[in-house]
């Protein structure tokens, strides 16, 4: 068995009395691509944010490899360097060019020599197909380009695992493909990834495991074949067919 990179154990999180995560556990292994799906409000994003502590869980433990993430005890900033995160609305630094956005992490956090950091940033931008946009500011880029820069920014920190929080939800339909393409390349290159997404095509092609979250716990998980073709639970089947239907409706509209 491959070695576990990330272990989430029995996470609980309440927001204003509503329990969003109810004792959720999940282990992600090296090189694995885990796609998390589930109805909205079920805690998918909260789960990702609890992993790198952008949201503080009420209880439960998170381990990155062997290291337990405990704010106050572990150096949270050091842990976060090793966990790349891609947000739904990109969150590129608006005052910096694409190149500077990618280089700022290595420069400020890793104290990398500037020359080297920019070299690295150029490489990462090329990797997401945006070498020619290095000098552009975020406001001058399309949504898809922004998200690819955001992926490059996370990659520049050389993370052990990448978290994607609905990376294509804020994109126009015609821009989704370029981002998914970059993510597939990343998956093929062996990156460990946890992806919250409703892109069933991506899940089918790139996921090693699909996790169906419902009501704050893992309702079911398994290989794409199993989840898509032969789910154990009725709820999983319903959800998959609903999402697939919605996706195909959206595709039809595009064609029209």
């Amino acid at each position: 068995m491959a070695k576990p990179i990330l272990r989430v154990e029995n996470i609980h999180k309440k927001f204003k009395g509503t329990e969003v995560l109810k004792g959720l556990s999940l282990t992600v292994y090296e090189g694995e691509v885990v796609v998390i799906i589930g109805p909205s409000g079920t805690g998918k994003s909260t789960l990702l944010r609890c992993i790198n502590r952008l949201t503080e869980p009420d209880s439960g433990d998170v381990y990155l490899e062997e290291q337990k993430i405990e704010p106050g005890k572990t150096n949270l900033n050091y842990i976060r360097q090793q966990i790349g995160m891609v947000f739904q609305d990109f969150n590129l630094f608006n005052h910096l060019t694409a190149l500077q956005n990618v280089a700022i992490g290595p420069i400020k956090v890793k104290k990398m020599d500037k020359q080297k950091a920019y070299e690295l940033a150029r490489k990462e931008l090329a990797r997401v197909g945006l070498a020619d946009k290095a000098a552009n500011y975020p406001a001058e880029l399309s949504g898809g380009q922004k998200q690819r820069v955001a992926i490059a920014r996370a990659l520049a920190m050389d993370p052990k695992i990448m978290l994607f929080d609905e990376p294509t939800s804020a994109l126009d339909p015609e821009l989704i493909g370029e981002v998914l393409e970059v993510m597939k390349d990343l998956a093929n290159a062996g990156m460990t990834m946890v992806v919250v997404s409703h892109e069933m095509g991506f899940a089918r092609e790139a996921a090693d495991r699909i996790v169906f979250l419902e009501n704050g716990v893992v309702a079911e998980m398994g290989s794409p074949e199993k989840i898509f073709n032969n789910p154990e639970k009725e709820r999983t089947r319903e959800f998959i067919s609903k999402i697939t239907r919605l996706n195909s409706v959206a595709k039809d509209r595009e064609v029209l």
């Binding site: 900033n77 790349g84 969150n91 700022i104 956090v109």
Partner: peptide, 20 residues
Amino acid sequence: GQMEAALALGMSKYQGIFYV
């Protein structure tokens, strides 16, 4: 989201404030 992105990169809160 700007501060969150800074923190997610591993910046301290102060780095986030001053650089972002």
